[in-house]
Amino acid sequence: MSRFVTAALAGVILSLAGGLLATGTAMGADDAMAKGRELAFDRKKGNCLACHMIADGDLPGNLGPPLIAMKARYPDKAALRAQIWDSTVSNPRTTMPPFGKHGILSDEEIDLVTEYIYSL
């Protein structure tokens, strides 16, 4: 929980600082977004496209819903992260792999993927 509080605080500070120091912080966020996207597309990592349509991804699968309007679907980013970490909590028979619970992605990797997916 404190992770989220810290992250949220950091986010606030970053966005405040971002107004003043546009270049430095913007680069950091872009980097995180690029890494998150890379992990999401990597077949050995997130492999999101296997089951989800993503705007700029080729040959998406359709087992899961398209990854669009994520902020509307998950007003709380932590809920999206929790869904990626272990979606069997919200639906015990879901087909979606529990990326965090089964160590498919590390916690850091899940943070990055969450950032990226949340931007869709």
Binding site: A50, L59, G61, T95, P98, I104
Partner: peptide, 21 residues
Amino acid sequence: GQLNFSCADCHVTNAGMQVRA
């Protein structure tokens, strides 16, 4: 498995759906 799939997950529940192509 690490990906947590049963035979039925793919071939009953999601039969006919696309995994990529």
